[in-house]
Design a protein around this nucleic acid. Structure first.
Lengths: 192, 192
DNA sequence: CCGATCAGACCGACCGGTCGGTACCGCGTG
DNA sequence: CACGCGGTACCGACCGGTCGGTCTGATCGG
């Protein structure tokens, strides 16, 4: 991520503004003013406001993908792989909560070409999770009557949703949330 | 919902447009043109574009709340109450998928006063679900080491997320999804 | 004829993006 | 060292167009 300091400042400012007001409510003028640069400075570093949005999207989905692939490689059974994916995804909110909030709320504003790239990576992530769960069901690690497709979406949903309610200064750390989520996904609510 | 036909047409058109382009990318002119009315007609029925957005939000959260309260009243044990809440929430996507998509993506664009009303109802919904799970843990229907707060958010997340991927003409009906979700929430992935 | 409903021209604010210009830095040359 | 030169980073006035909202009337049922 070794970028010019101005570019970095613009991105950080934009993250904050987009997260609290929404992409389309924040003008380039506002980003420029609050990041201490100028229109010229902005368009020197980005070809358009859209490209800035794309870069924010790309940061976090790329990172998430890498972490998930790592988790799969590091373990050789579905249970541990799934635990690793959940854990790495949840921990992503430590550094990327703003990114993820924007990722989940502003994807409609990406232009077609940008959207295609992002969706490609998101689908790869989805497929990864699907494969792990599927493998677990096949080899008996997971219950055989689990519906892989829907459970995959359920897990994705419960984690993606975290950006809506997690606060770094709240009652639960991301480590704790990851543990509780894993336990919930594995065991459900009913007692033995 | 007994409204003037014009108002109804405007809302239906707006739902479609907001869902596919995002609130702030759709102009009043566009809504007006596609719903076959005029600026005058629009501003006769709504005080502002914001109010239209608020009404869309209010429709679905009010409905969801009613259904959840019904489910709780109809059953006397936490397990059935939870099943009822999940089921009624999932089935909401049948008539309110557009509403829910907008509800989840465009809440940042609500003005402060509208936002407060909506958040009040959303919090009530959250508290309802929390109470049911809490009760189940207390009376032994659910595992005692379930973390109620986080599990509540997990369940909310996995259901709210449905608007991102559910398609009425897809492989799964909402009834099936509700059943799979309930089973997943109750039993998790691991076999006995 | 009165109020409800709607038509559409119009307004002023705002917004993304452009463009001509400036400041500065490293480098080769005399 | 002085000087000029090319290139990079940045500045900010400005432009064309869009948007939410207003206003003056027209239409019509009762």
């Amino acid at each position: 991520m070794e970028q010019s300091p101005t570019k970095d400042r613009i991105i950080r400012t934009a993250l904050r503004l987009f997260e609290s007001c929404g992409y389309s409510r924040v003008s380039v003028d506002q980003i420029v003013k609050e990041s201490g640069t100028s229109k010229g400075g902005f368009y020197h570093n980005f070809t358009s406001k859209d490209e800035l949005l794309y870069m924010i999207h790309d940061f976090c989905v790329t990172h998430a993908l890498e972490k998930a692939e790592e988790a799969i490689e590091r373990h050789d059974n579905a249970k541990e792989q799934l635990r690793g994916i959940i854990r790495s995804f949840v921990l992503l909110f430590d550094t990327y909560q703003s990114h993820l909030a924007i990722f989940n709320e502003e994807s409609l504003h990406l232009s077609r070409e940008y959207l295609k790239k992002i969706e490609g990576k998101r689908d790869r992530y989805k497929r990864l999770l699907h494969q792990v769960i599927e493998e677990g069901v096949k080899n008996g690690e997971f219950r055989s009557n689990s519906n892989v497709t829907i459970v995959t979406m359920a897990v994705l949903g419960m984690i993606n949703w975290i950006y809506k309610w997690y606060r770094p200064d709240g009652d639960f750390s991301l480590e704790e949330i990851a543990d509780i989520y894993t336990d919930f996904v594995m065991n459900g609510l009913l007692p033995e």
